[in-house]
């Protein structure tokens, strides 16, 4: 019984870390226009809409965060193998992984923008300097929290996988949670505040993203500020719940019978499917012109 109580405590701590990680991850990716909003940021200059939005598509969020967290975990593993204290090892691993993330971000922005020279899109050096550092700060929080929760799963809960493999798995899960939950808020809402709410993006509006702010020209820190409030929190809750519920069902039910943990997992998926469907139908009925798609096209 005692180890179950201890396990639930670790589960709660891991869930809290995951919530912070998810929130930071979504804000980071939104400041870098990573994920699905990226195509519109890339397209805008080609349609004649030059902008000062940061564009650092390294890869989709799941593979990118798979690398950052796996790298952070791998470096932390190596430092621990060198008999360095785990706390220091995880911090050093996260710092180095963040350095790699920052370098990738600069080369992605400069490369993409240079390839758009034909359309007159300049490289803004001030954007490069100010946005990269902000994304690195958020990425550090996301990587540190994820590697820490992987270390907790490995040492406190006794998971058999080595730290780098856990980093890979939970990094991909983190990227997927941020990409699926937080991104639409930036890609479908923030970029198209000049369109009718809930109308989707008609082809005629492609690339016509909002480029001007309340005062002056909008940049990606404005987008990060906007999405941190709801998109970031939603991503945090999403990843936090994934980590918490996954560990909770294992810690509580595996002790009784390993099959119970699997049955509870399947039941959870069914319950969430029903909840998701209910919320989607309710959302469509309550907001937006989705009920008559033909009118939207006209």
């Amino acid at each position: 019984m005692e180890h179950i109580v201890f396990g639930i405590g670790i589960t709660a701590l891991a869930g809290a870390l995951a919530t912070v990680a998810g929130s930071a991850e979504d804000t980071e990716s939104n400041i870098g226009s990573q994920g699905d909003p990226n195509s519109q940021v890339q397209l805008a200059p080609q349609m004649g809409f030059l902008h000062r939005i940061f564009n650092k598509a390294v890869a989709g969020e799941p593979p990118a965060y798979g690398l950052w967290c796996c790298l952070g975990a791998g470096l932390a593993w190596a430092f621990m193998a060198m008999q360095i204290n785990p706390v220091l090892a995880i911090v050093l691993g996260a710092v180095l992984a963040t350095f790699v993330q920052g370098v990738y971000a600069t080369t992605a922005y400069v490369g993409r923008t240079a390839s758009l020279a034909k359309f007159g899109q300049p490289v803004f050096v001030d954007i490069l300097k100010s946005m990269t550092t902000v994304t690195m700060a958020h990425a550090f929080i996301a990587i540190f929290c994820t590697v820490t929760l992987c270390h907790l799963i490995n040492t406190a809960l006794g998971h058999p996988f080595p730290l780098p493999l856990l980093g890979l798995i939970w990094g991909i899960a983190l990227g997927a949670a941020g990409s699926a939950t937080g991104n639409p808020y930036y890609g479908k809402e923030r970029q198209y505040q000049n369109q009718k709410f809930g109308a989707g993006v008609p082809i005629s509006a492609s690339g016509n993203i909002v480029r001007y702010a309340e005062a002056g020209e909008r940049n990606s820190i404005d987008n990060g500020w906007f999405t941190a409030k709801i998109g970031g929190s939603a991503s945090g809750i999403c990843f936090g719940m994934i980590v918490f519920l996954e560990l909770w069902r294992t810690v509580v039910f595996e002790a009784i019978n390993p099959w119970y943990a699997i049955i509870v997992g399947v039941l959870m998926i069914l319950i969430f499917t029903v909840i998701d469907r209910y919320i989607e139908v309710w959302g469509r009925k309550t907001y937006g012109p989705y009920t008559a798609p033909k009118e939207a096209e006209a």
Binding site: Q42, A57, V58, A59, P63, A64, G66, L67, C70, L71, A73, G74, W77, A78, A81, Y104, T107, A108, G111, R112, A114, S115, L116, A117, K118, F119, F161, P162, L163, P164, L165, G167, L168
Partner: peptide
Amino acid sequence: GGCLIAVAFLLGAIAIQHPFNACLGPGW
């Protein structure tokens, strides 16, 4: 055994695709 091979896997997989992903476009 320490799964550093997973780190090597992703380091390589991102490094191999990033250059074209970052430089694609009319000005490649």
